[in-house]
Write a protein that binds this DNA or RNA. Structure first.
Lengths: 333, 333
DNA sequence: TTGTAGGCGTTATCAA
DNA sequence: TTGATAACGCCTACAA
């Protein structure tokens, strides 16, 4: 494979000149010289080697993207947003799934640190873990995505989970429901805590203090199980708010299994939209997060931070949106 | 940031010894020495820097994964499969979307070549493009995924598209349908050609030579449009076979819009499963590809190739599976 | 078993 | 505007 030295030799210049000609620093090289270099590049089919450059500059033009599961459509759209922004600015993305496993997350962050990524976007499985703190302590910029990292000053991009959950619950209250079940996520995840808080806040604002909460682990199966528990209550709920997309699918399956017609016998609203939400029976009413934007803003924030490590920490909160379809209806006697 | 030199100094050994102690070559270093090195590593919070290693070895422990759109659930599962295998063998994945755009694909492959990825898994938007040939000509191993690369000997992992499409069409024929519409994908993509071929072959085997084909671009919208065209035929089909998941969603939307009840008035079968296929109304009968396996096998193949560049080219074809749900039914008078 | 020393292919500094 | 040269931090012969 041709090296810069080969190109320099063929063009009759030094490697320094080749480097300047190719790195596009204007005015640094005479047009005629650049021309000769470019021709030599073409003739030798020279492909720049980023490895020495990365080493010399102590950093690669690569970002890390650490999420819990790419198979979750919520993260899928986020990844798209990140990738589009990064690509447009000449950066690549190293992707890793942690499966909500702190050990895997630690391993991944270690590797990315060793690869000297320019920065990391992190939806952390474990907000308080030591490796995260170490990463933050090192010089690698981090943006927390969807999930806050406790007690550390770090750039953050989230949805307004509290107000989204409030809106969802309020919507059900406005339809006359008072016994509203929550299929909640783990309290260890900030976004899930916030959703539970929004739900509780809405109930309180209507003078309701009793909450009907059944917690899951964000996966479909747990939504199914949590729903059955709610339905088996002495006084089951007349409406259910599910705190994430995968669990909502489980909720729907459980309601079907019990032969409950939605929304006639029970209303359902979910946090997070689903690609096929409109085609489900009934079309699902949801609080949709601006997932693509979430990813895009996170990538922008990270690249800003890479360029300007000492800028003040930013926190971006995007507004979720209530999408009314047909899975919620007025309370029936 | 601490370097190996710092560690060597603190442990009172040479950098060569540190390198040996850390790279885990057994018997190369005395246990007591290794102990001292490890302690120095801990004390200095030394994190290995892969950049010089990559440079020295002329390759990174990173693989490229080039697909058309991560937001398509088909690719999502594939990515999961790739990532799991790669991670288990100490490799990371650089992800890029091409949006079926040959120029973007070229740019991406160029970057990955410059990053000296150890290999690339490629679902190509343009099977015949020059940059691909150049990449194949260089020393970077490539595995073609889902889509063949014409006229080049390259490791390939695909589903058996022809027989999957044959099975889908045969299923409809067995139900008594004779006017079967195909919502096809672009002929430029090998897997789509194969699906059209399987459809045609099944019809022929039942003595039917007239095909009802309307082509789309794999996106939801085009499935919708193609379906309307089929329905507006003087003699519309009594069943539709849709050649990919996103288009199937569009087909369903079009059928709904026309008020056609599925499967009573028209049957529908799709290629590719959908995460919520069971929850759709009606639950969708599909030919499901083993997507996770597709990704996992591709990553395995690529890593084999990385280790053994001169092994014979392999072609892996996985069997898709007919998943009977409720969107197909017998032909009604 | 350990150390010395050279080199990987760029970029950056400094001088011309 | 260009060239010579010294890093960058690790790995690996080769020597001890």
């Amino acid at each position: 494979m041709a090296t810069m030295k080969d190109v320099a030799h063929r063009a009759g210049v030094s490697t320094a000149t080749v480097s300047r000609a190719l790195s596009g620093v204007a005015d640094a090289v005479r047009p005629a010289t650049r021309e000769r270099v470019l021709q030599a590049v073409a003739e030798l089919a020279y492909h720049p080697n980023h490895l020495p450059r990365n080493m010399r500059q102590r950093s690669s033009r690569t970002l890390g993207l650490v999420i819990t599961d790419i198979a979750n459509p919520f993260f899928t759209a986020i990844v798209r947003g990140c990738e589009d922004v990064a690509q447009s600015q000449g950066y690549s993305f190293l992707l890793a799934n942690t499966d909500e496993d702190a050990a895997k997350e630690e391993q991944t962050l270690r590797t990315m640190a060793s690869e000297r990524v320019a920065g990391v976007i992190l939806a952390s499985a474990d907000e308080a873990s030591e490796p995260i703190r170490r990463l933050l302590g090192s010089r690698i910029p981090v943006v927390a995505l969807d999930r806050r990292i406790d007690g550390v000053a770090v750039d953050t991009v989230t949805s307004d989970n509290d107000s989204g959950a409030y809106d969802a619950t309020k919507h059900l209250l406005d339809l006359g429901h008072e016994r509203i079940g929550l299929v909640a996520g783990p309290e260890t995840i900030s976004s899930m805590r916030e959703r539970t808080a929004g739900y509780t806040r809405a109930l309180r604002s209507h003078g309701i203090t009793e909450t009907l909460v059944s917690a899951g682990d964000l996966r479909e199966r747990s939504g199914y199980t949590a729903t059955l528990q709610l339905l088996d209550l002495p006084e089951p709920p007349t409406a259910i708010f599910s705190a994430n997309n995968l669990m909502t699918i489980g909720v729907l399956a459980a309601l079907r299994e019990r032969g409950l017609s939605v929304p006639d016998e029970i209303s359902l609203i979910g946090f997070d939209d689903l690609p096929t939400a409109e085609l489900l029976q009934p079309p699902l009413t949801v609080v949709a997060q601006p997932t693509y934007q979430l990813g895009a803003r996170a990538a922008e924030l990270l690249l800003q931070r890479v360029r300007n490590p000492d800028a003040p920490v930013q926190e971006i909160v995007l507004a979720p949106q209530l999408v009314l379809r047909a899975s919620t209806g007025p309370l029936r006697g």
